[in-house]
Design a protein around this nucleic acid. Structure first.
Lengths: 199, 199
DNA sequence: ACCATTCTGGTACGGTCGTGCAATTTATTT
DNA sequence: AAATAAATTGCACGACCGTACCAGAATGGT
C-alpha cells in the first residue's frame, strides 16, 4: 500500500516520514532503513513496509519531507524580508542561509547539514527515482533566491543566478575534503567576490 | 598485516588494489566489498583481510590508485602539450579533460565517470580517513590545471583557478540531478562564459 | 448484529556483509 | 629430510538488511 486511507493511518504514515527525514538529515541516505525508521517513530517494523511499497519509496518521501521543510523555512524567511537596498555582505549571507540552511552555533552540526544537500545532489545521480523530485526542489530554490536578490536591490537574471549557485556548490564540495572543512566560509568568500561591483 | 613482505605478496596485494579501483570506478564506494574485490582479482576472500587491516584501508588504497591513474594520465597529456597560444574553447576542453577525465564516446559512461569524482568529494565528508589523501590529490590537480593555462597563453592565479574549478564542480553537481544529465556540457558552458575576455 | 476492509505487529526467510580463526600450504632454515 | 616459521585460505559466526507472511485487532458500512 502506497498511501493510507484512514486519518489515523495517515498520521502514522506521517510519523514514519518524519522519522525518516530526521535520520536522513543526521546520517545521510544510508541511515534511512526500515528498522531505524520504525524504531525512531516508535512503530513496529512492519509498519514501514505496510505504508511504503519499498525502501526507495520511503527514501523518496524522506527526501521530499526534508526538502519541503527547508523550502518552507526559506519561504517564511522571505516573507519577513522587507524590500530595500542591502549591501553585498548582507545579500551573501541571505543567499547562504537559503542554500545551506541557517548557520547553527555548532560548526560540526553545520557540516552535517551542508553535507546532506550535496549528498542529495550526487546521490540523485545513482538514484534515478529521485530525479524529478530534485529538479522540482531546485527550481523552487532558484525562485527563492531570485526573489531575495530582487528585494535587496540587486536583481539578477536566472542565468547569472545559476552561475552564482554553481560557485557556491563548487566551493562547498571542494571545502568538504579539507582537513578542517569550513564549507560555509569557503562559499561565503567565493560568493562575496563574485558579487563585488568590480575589483 | 597492512603491507606484504614478499615480492609475490606485493604483487597479489597490488592486484587487489587494481580490482578495488576498477570496482570503485564502476559502482562507487558501495561497490568496494571484500567479496567483490577478491572475486574480481581471482583471489580468495581471506586475501583481502590478510593484506588490508580493514575495509576502510582497502577503500583508501582504491581511491589512491584510481586518483593516481587519473593524475598520471593528466600529467602525460600535459607532457605532450606544446606551449602556444590557444583559444578559449580549446583551453576549456583541456581543462574539462583534466577535471572530468577524457570524454568517452558513450555518454552514459561519461556520467558514471563524472559521478565518481563527485562521490569522492562528498564521500570524503563522511569518511575522514580519506581527507589527507583527497587534499593531496586536489593539490596535484590544481598544479596540472595551472600549467595547462600557462602553456596556453592564458595564465591564471591560483585564486582565480579555484574559482573556475568551483564553477565547474558546481555546474556538474547541479547537472547530475537533471532528468537528462549532461554534466560535461553544463560545465563546458559555465567555464567558457567565465573565460570569455568579456561579454 | 454482521461482515468486509483496513490496519497492526510479531516473526522468519534468504541474502549480504565484515571479520576472526584454525587449518593448510608454502618457504626457509637446520 | 626434518623442523620451523611464514604466508595463505576455507569457513563460519554474528550482525544487519529488505521484505514476505499471517494471525489478529480495529474500523466502518450495512
Amino acid at each position: 500500500m502506497t498511501s493510507a486511507s484512514t486519518p489515523k493511518g495517515e498520521r502514522r504514515r506521517n510519523e514514519l516520514i518524519d522519522a525518516a527525514a530526521a535520520l536522513l538529515a543526521e546520517g545521510g541516505f544510508d541511515a534511512v532503513r526500515h528498522r531505524a525508521v520504525s524504531e525512531r517513530a516508535g512503530l513496529p517494523l512492519a509498519s514501514t513496509t505496510y505504508y511504503f511499497d519499498s525502501l526507495d519509496e520511503l527514501i523518496t518521501a524522506a527526501v521530499e519531507r526534508h526538502g519541503r521543510n527547508e523550502l518552507d523555512a526559506g519561504a517564511r524567511r522571505l516573507d519577513e524580508l522587507a524590500a530595500r537596498h542591502r549591501g553585498v555582505d548582507t545579500v551573501v549571507e541571505l543567499m547562504l542561509e537559503q542554500l545551506l540552511g541557517p548557520e547553527p552555533a555548532d560548526s560540526a552540526a553545520d557540516l552535517d547539514g551542508v553535507l546532506l544537500r550535496y549528498e542529495r545532489l550526487v546521490g540523485t545521480g545513482r538514484r534515478p527515482y529521485l530525479r524529478s523530485l530534485s529538479v522540482a526542489m531546485s527550481d523552487e530554490m532558484d525562485a527563492l533566491l531570485l526573489e531575495i536578490c530582487e528585494r535587496s536591490g540587486m536583481p539578477v537574471s536566472l542565468h547569472r543566478l545559476k552561475q552564482l549557485i554553481a560557485l557556491v556548490d563548487g566551493a562547498v564540495v571542494n571545502a568538504l575534503v579539507e582537513v578542517n572543512p569550513e564549507p560555509r566560509a569557503a562559499a561565503r568568500k567565493m560568493l562575496s567576490e563574485a558579487l563585488q561591483p568590480t575589483a
